[in-house]
Design a protein around this nucleic acid. Structure first.
Lengths: 344, 344
DNA sequence: CTGAAAGCGCTTACAG
DNA sequence: CTGAAAGCGCTTACAG
């Protein structure tokens, strides 16, 4: 006969995983002391610390982040939303964010909004389930519903790539309008008579660059209406097509400002194909200073954007917010640089 | 006198967050039924389901992923490690992974190993704290310690970008050696006498492409020793420099195989600058078919790699593994295509 | 400097 | 189809 005391065991849910309790037992301390040794070692006696370290190593202990998040209501995760990963501009920003967050033990979840406000809101809803400590968002044109959602969940956010003076939302970027303005001023100073604008994607920041560009032309008494706009993403291929389109519209066009360098590269290739000398018959200016721009033939005049620094600075500001440290300003202008090269 | 029963409340840790209990109360069901309505709605009566949905909406309830992960030991998170995010090849793979995982409710953590096995192991250790359900790794040359770690934690992994026939590790990619071989065969068939090799990064897959390239030259009785190798990452700028280096080493070199298209673009610009006609005086072949390759002037001959499909397929296989479904094969060869254009 | 108790918000494993 | 109880592995809030 089997013992009637030997009931089948209920609720056996052990994951087999090594836990803080196992480490504590081996190191002959309480679980609480192991937790302290990991988070605030200064509060734990050196001897105990050594025994704990040895036990962790021997057992191959890895802390369970889910348990930590649940108990502390802090996830050490930052949600990052960028418009696109195919655009190396945003990858550079992610690198800046990573370099900044890694120093402070934060991880990040990367989301790609494809420039869609709806998708951005949706991603943020999904990420909220992971209880992120904060968000890094792209642009300043978020939907009201999104603002409410962030406020309800009490999650701080920093906006990147634009400026937002006079607004309480923390923003890190530069003035796209001024950048477009300065390209136009440069082309005017060089003596081009009919500069045109090539715009893709048509996101808000691109439209601001366009606005600055048109403003400078108008101020100089020149025609600001020479342009080709399309909502599709900018690529080299698109640039090759847009050159033909703008020349058809304005045969006298002698310079183009491309809203991104990949468009500019496409224009350059197409000029070569058509036997148009650059900058003699067609000047080309781009935007962002992508890695190849300086090495093209000829080198492409462009706006150097501080995208790595935008990511790094935005992350630093977010960490300050999380620590409730005071900020000097809510709108950080990192500026831009006009790089004049042989294409204009 | 104040009542002696009114003790100060201990252990008040309420986060203020809306929980499943709040939803349950409002919907007049148990928390368990709310949980079921979310995960397995078919098991919940339609009326209850409607009341729960209304309560969720009214309260703005968002499930706490940390609590779910802790209770179920399933995180719905996949760890993805790629060598580099600056290389658009891997970004395309991430897009494929995303398209595949999103269908099944998984999120993913992206790590960048910078082609370093040490960094890869380190990232995986960090990610293990998040209890990922699985990993998608790049390459087949992982360290033994890493294999052990994955085995200990019982986390399945799929390798990407290479082949691994006869091995039990699941791998999705194509043969880099065959790709290098086919580029060499093409250059030989076109009549080039002294093809050279330009290699950057020197990662294992690049070395396999080189091996295939050299093998074809040797078989044809040609000199396989014309090459420039450097461990730095491939860029357009690097390509402009490497052309000079290989011409110095072998002035008769009349064709180059670049281990990546950005190198090829740099070579093209430098040829233009030096007045070398392409392909007349110098033929150029690249690798990967980056977005601009077809639109350069001339279009660049290259190997079209199935990088989106690699990501998509690898994620599909991982999901099968997680569901303990049988796989037909452990090494999936997605192949490659030789795109012959005007540069060769 | 250390530890016992309680709780974070879910899901598992039952029982009905 | 539904629910009460227990537990996942940590950290908080005390008390010493």
């Amino acid at each position: 006969m089997t013992s009637p005391e030997l009931k089948p065991q209920r609720h056996s849910r052990a994951s087999g995983r090594v836990t803080i309790v196992d480490v504590a037992r081996l190191a002959r301390v309480s679980p609480m002391t192991v937790s302290r040794a990991l988070k605030t070692p200064a509060l734990v006696q050196l001897e105990a610390r050594d025994r704990i370290a040895a036990a962790i190593k021997q057992l191959g202990y890895v802390p369970n982040q889910a348990a930590s998040t649940l108990a502390s209501a802090k996830s050490q995760v930052i949600g990052v939303i960028v418009p696109s990963l195919s655009n190396s501009v945003f990858v550079d920003t992610l690198t800046g964010i990573r370099d900044s967050l890694n120093q402070h033990g934060y991880k990040f979840l990367i989301g790609e909004s494809s420039y869609s406000p709806d998708k951005e809101s949706q991603l943020i809803s999904t990420y909220l389930a992971h209880a992120p400590d904060g968000f890094l968002l792209s642009g300043i044109e978020q939907q009201d519903a999104l603002r409410e959602q962030l406020a309800t969940h009490n999650v701080p956010a920093v906006r990147m790539f634009d400026l937002n003076p006079g607004n309480s939302e923390v923003t890190v970027g530069f003035s796209h309008e001024e950048a477009g303005y300065s390209i136009a001023r440069h082309l005017i100073a060089r003596g081009y008579r009919q500069p045109g604008f090539l715009g893709a994607q048509l996101d808000p920041r691109m439209m601001k660059r366009r606005h600055g560009f048109r403003k400078a032309l108008s101020e100089a008494g020149m025609n600001p209406e020479v342009e080709v706009l399309t909502p599709v993403p900018s690529t080299v291929e698109l640039g090759t097509k847009m050159l033909g389109q703008i020349l058809q519209q304005a045969p006298a066009c002698d310079a183009v400002f491309c809203c991104n360098d990949d468009l500019a590269l496409g224009v350059l290739f197409e000029c070569q194909r058509r036997g148009l000398s650059v900058p003699g018959q067609m000047a080309i200016a781009g935007f962002n200073d992508l890695p190849w721009s300086a090495f093209a033939n000829p080198g492409i005049t462009t706006i150097v954007t501080p995208r790595y620094d935008i990511g790094f600075t935005a992350a630093q500001l977010l960490i300050k917010l999380l620590r409730h440290e005071p900020l000097e300003t809510t709108s950080v202008d990192l500026g831009f640089k006009l790089a004049i090269r042989s294409s204009t």
